[in-house]
Amino acid sequence: MAEADRAARREAVGELGTVLRDLADAAVRTEVPAGELTAVAAAARELTARLRAAGRGLHEVASVDDPEAGERWYSPVHGRGNPVAPALEAGETPGGRATGRVTVGKAHEGPPGLVHGGVVATLLDHLLARAVRAAGRGGLTATLTVRYRRPVPLGVPLLLTAEAGESSGRRTTATARVVAEDAPGTVLAEAEGLFVALRPERSAEVFRSLADPAGTWTARTGDAGA
C-alpha cells in the first residue's frame, strides 16, 4: 500500500474508532426504551454487514499496521481503530522509559465508579512492554505482578510511567505505576513484569503472518541461546 493511501486509510480508521467508542459509551449508559434498543440493534446489524464485505483473516496483519514500529491500529489498549480500547496515548524515550495518559470510561467499569482491575493490569502491562522496547529489547510478557494501592476512578485523567530494569540473555524486567493526573504523589497501582524474547526459530513459528517480527519480540543476535 502506498504511503499516501495508508495515511488516508489510517485517518478513516481512526475516525471510525472514535465514533464506535462513543457508541459503546452510549450503549453502556443508555436508559432508552426497549423498543429503541431493538431498533438500534437492527441498524447496527446492517452496519456490521457493510464492514464484513471485505475483511482479513484472524492471523492477518491490518494494512494500516506497522508492528515493527509499534503501530497497532486495532490494539485493545491504544488502537485508534479499536472500539473496545480505552484509547491510551503512550510513547517511549530512549533508555528504557515509557509514559502514557488515559481517561477510562464506563465501558471499562468494574465496581461502580471504578476502573476494572483487569483493565488496570492491561494498561500497566502495555507500558511495561513499551519500556522494554525503548531499552532496545524484545519480548513477550512472561510474568506480571500488579499491586493495587488505591481504587482507580473512572473519568479521571490518569498518568502511567514505566522503566526497564535488568536484562540477562533473553530476559528483561520492568516496573510501572499509575497515578491520577491531579494527585501524582499517590500511587494507585504499580506493576513488575518479566519479558522474555523468543528465539528466532520460535518467533518465526509464532508470528508466521509477519514478514519480520525480529525487532519487537525476538532475541537479538548473541542472546538467542541464553
Rank of each mutant, 00 (worst) to 15 (best):
E3S: 07
A8Y: 07
R9S: 02
R10L: 10
A12V: 14
V13Q: 06
V13W: 01
T18A: 13
D22F: 00
L23Q: 08
L23K: 04
A27K: 07
V28W: 02
T30M: 03
A34K: 12
G35D: 14
G35L: 08
G35S: 14
E36H: 12
E36F: 09
L37G: 09
A39K: 11
A42S: 13
A44R: 12
R45A: 15
E46T: 15
L47Y: 11
L47G: 04
A49R: 13
A49Q: 11
L51W: 03
L51K: 01
R52W: 01
A53H: 02
A54M: 09
G57M: 02
E60R: 05
V61E: 15
A62N: 00
A62G: 11
V64R: 07
V64H: 00
D66I: 06
P67D: 14
P67R: 07
A69K: 15
G70M: 14
G70L: 10
E71G: 11
W73C: 01
W73Q: 11
Y74I: 14
S75D: 11
S75V: 06
V77R: 11
H78I: 00
H78P: 00
H78F: 09
R80H: 11
P83S: 13
P86T: 01
P86V: 08
E89N: 05
R97C: 04
R101H: 08
R101K: 09
V102C: 00
V104C: 03
A107I: 10
E109T: 15
G110D: 07
G113P: 09
G113H: 09
L114G: 01
H116T: 08
V119D: 07
V119P: 02
V120W: 06
V120H: 00
A121K: 00
A121V: 09
L124M: 15
L128I: 07
R130I: 05
A131L: 14
V132I: 11
V132P: 01
R133D: 04
R133C: 03
R137T: 12
R137G: 03
A142E: 13
T143Y: 09
T143S: 14
L144M: 13
T145E: 15
V146Q: 08
R147E: 14
Y148S: 08
R150V: 01
R150W: 10
V152L: 07
V152F: 06
P153S: 08
P157W: 01
L159A: 04
L159H: 15
L159T: 02
E163I: 07
S167W: 08
G169I: 10
G169V: 06
R170D: 10
R171N: 05
T172P: 04
T173N: 02
T173Q: 07
T175N: 06
V178C: 05
P184T: 01
P184F: 04
V187C: 06
A189S: 12
E190V: 08
E192A: 10
L194E: 07
L194K: 09
F195S: 06
A204W: 04
E205R: 08
E205H: 12
A211E: 13
G215L: 14
T216Q: 10
T216W: 05
W217P: 07
R220W: 09
T221F: 12
T221P: 13
T221I: 12
T221L: 14
G225W: 03
